[in-house]
Simulated scan of single mutants.
Amino acid sequence: MKKQYVVIGLGRFGTSVARTLVEQDADVLVIDKNEEKINDAMHYATHGVQADATDENALKSLGIRNFDVACVCLGEIQSSIMAALICKEQGIDLVVVKAQSEVHAKVLYKMGVDKVVFPERDMGIRVAHNLLSSNILDFIELSDDYGIAELEAHAAWVGETLIDLDFRKKYGLSVIAIRHGETDVNVNPLPGDRISAGDVVIVIGSEEQISKLEENK
């Protein structure tokens, strides 16, 4: 069953996230107070509703608890915090929120928000890419086309060496580190190093190459 996504707030960032999710064949509900933005969203979103995202009853009536992922993209800090709190209280598994400042981010994390993003650091298309993939943990943009991705070791990689997997030949990617647990990081691993269950493999390459690896994992 496909995951259900809700994007709250249709500024430039929220619109970018929603469009990218839909382009990847995801089911997306968009919510915004602005009727014109909702009307525009109906050209690309699965569903669109004009509503105040800080109104708990309004979100409950939309069945917000049935969604797997919520991306709160509101520009006003108080509204952002209220909407995020409602999403968490309704039991949504993954709540991602756009933050305006480090203080805003700290408040959100203390509330239990799962991930905080900054528009100037995380383009909406990258955030959507991360949400859609169960394997990519994080993506750091180096340029318009290239980046560094952290990937959970797939079952097929466990017990294999880097030379066996040959990421460079198959995908054009370079493995720059392997993380074992939270603190043990093998920087610039050797071809004979093996991947263990639970490892995180850190690769560098183009977004296209990283997507190809994810599709063929």
Rank of each mutant, 00 (worst) to 15 (best):
H129L: 12
Q4P: 05
L94D: 06
V158W: 02
A197R: 13
A153H: 04
K37V: 02
I92P: 00
I148Y: 03
L213M: 12
N130L: 15
G11E: 03
S79A: 13
V158F: 01
V28T: 02
V72N: 09
I148R: 13
E89G: 04
I178L: 11
E56I: 05
T161C: 13
I202T: 10
T183Q: 14
N39V: 12
N66H: 02
M1G: 04
Y146W: 09
V201N: 11
I38W: 09
E152G: 10
D144I: 04
I125R: 15
H180P: 05
L85R: 13
I178C: 07
D27N: 14
R179V: 05
C87A: 14
T183H: 15
L85Q: 11
D114F: 03
L29I: 01
E35I: 08
E152K: 15
N188T: 09
Q78V: 07
S79R: 15
D164P: 03
Y171G: 09
A156S: 15
G124S: 08
D166V: 09
D193P: 04
D145M: 15
I210T: 04
A128P: 05
E208Y: 08
D193I: 09
T20P: 04
Q209R: 14
A41N: 07
D32T: 04
V96T: 09
A156R: 15
N216F: 00
G192L: 12
L62W: 03
V96D: 02
E208A: 15
L165I: 09
V28Y: 00
R194C: 11
K3W: 00
V49M: 11
E150D: 12
L142W: 05
K212N: 09
T15E: 06
G147K: 12
I140V: 14
D27A: 14
E214G: 05
A83G: 00
I204M: 14
G181N: 10
T183I: 11
A84H: 05
N66G: 01
K88A: 07
Y5I: 08
I92N: 02
G147E: 06
D144Y: 05
